[in-house]
């Protein structure tokens, strides 16, 4: 299946892990657990299958409601004007309120409205789905896992059961997606459990630059305690450039790695070796 990078990551499987993947929201979600004997506290294959099924169901349900690629979704009916905002479901209203709150907190750098005025919550909904999936996994009693939603990562615990080591998340080099530009530790007592990356040429281009703002960064990665904060701020910094980057690092407890258009890296101290 993968051809370019297998050798590069061959070493990775020295830590025994089990991964399950599924397609949703136009990309692929990966759910990874440390694996080993059930007697040592590792999840059984059945438990992994059950956890993956719960997560997949949750993603599919949210996609049914919020996808603008599905003509029959609530979001599509809202976009076509068949449904008034005051008549939407509670779930739609909550996400809309959350998106407006983020627009306010980012001074407009993050916005739930497309340039044509259509409400598009896709910049928020994947992060929300990952957040909800994480809550479900914890409720299922799973305390070591990594959930990767198309490049946005939320973890808890460690990649090896019973060992207090963080997960290491690599960040793709936007100029060569087969290599990494940095790594960042998540989970296992570290202050950040989530890492999200946004690029200026993202699928669907759900990032819209603020008027007059040059696209200073081609890729921005944000580590935060929660996935929605990481995801929204990564999007906002790509859209809002250097002023939004400074505002984000001043106002939130985050680490940021930004790749400028000329390849120059900007990073907060948390990314320094």
């Amino acid at each position: 299946m993968p051809q370019t990078s297998e050798s590069q990551v061959a070493m990775t499987c020295r830590e025994a892990m089990k991964a399950r993947t599924f397609q949703c929201m136009g990309t692929v979600m990966s759910l990874t657990f440390p694996s080993g004997p059930a007697a040592e506290g590792h999840p059984s294959d059945d438990e992994i299958a059950a956890a993956a099924a719960v997560v997949e169901r949750l993603f599919l349900d949210l996609d049914q409601t919020f996808s603008l690629y599905r003509p029959d979704s609530e979001a599509s009916r809202l976009a076509r004007g068949e449904l008034a905002l005051r008549n939407v479901s509670a779930g739609m209203r909550e996400r809309y309120e959350e998106a407006l709150d983020w627009r306010h907190r980012t001074e407009g750098a993050f916005t739930p409205e497309r340039s044509d005025g259509v409400l598009d919550l896709s910049g928020l909904i994947k992060g929300h789905a990952i957040r909800e999936a994480g809550t479900s996994l914890l409720a299922l009693g799973r305390h070591d896992w990594c959930l990767n939603g198309g490049g946005d990562v939320l973890v808890t615990g460690s990649p090896k059961h019973g060992i207090d080591e963080p997960w290491q998340a690599g960040i793709v080099d936007p100029e060569d997606r087969g290599t990494l530009v940095a790594a960042y530790p998540l989970g296992a007592g570290r202050k950040h459990a989530a890492l999200a990356t946004s690029g200026s040429a993202e699928r669907g281009d759900h990032i819209w630059g603020q008027p007059g703002a040059a696209r200073a960064f081609i890729q921005v990665s944000v580590a935060a305690a929660d996935i929605v904060t990481a995801d929204v701020l990564a999007t906002a910094i790509v859209a809002g450039g250097a002023p939004m980057l400074d505002r984000a690092t001043d106002c939130w407890d985050i680490s940021v790695l930004a790749v400028a258009a000329d390849g120059q890296l900007l990073a907060t101290p948390g990314f320094r070796r």
């Binding site: 299946m1 993968p2 051809q3 370019t4 990078s5 297998e6 590069q8 990551v9 061959a10 070493m11 990775t12 830590e15 892990m17 991964a19 993947t21 397609q23 136009g26 990309t27 692929v28 990966s30 990874t32 994947k126 990594c146 990767n148 198309g150 490049g151 946005d152 990562v153 973890v155 990649p159 997960w167 290491q168 998340a169 690599g170 960040i171 793709v172 936007p174 997606r177 087969g178 290599t179 990494l180 790594a183 960042y184 890492l195 999200a196 990356t197 946004s198 690029g199 040429a201 993202e202 699928r203 890729q219 990665s221």
Partner: peptide
């Protein structure tokens, strides 16, 4: 690459996933 368990990057399409580092890890 050998020391990471997961990959963060700008969202790739389902098709793009097949040749991604994350796909190799998975």
């Amino acid at each position: 690459s050998a020391n990471v368990q997961t990959i963060s990057g700008a969202t790739v399409t389902s098709d793009g996933y097949l040749t991604s580092l994350q796909a190799a890890i998975d």
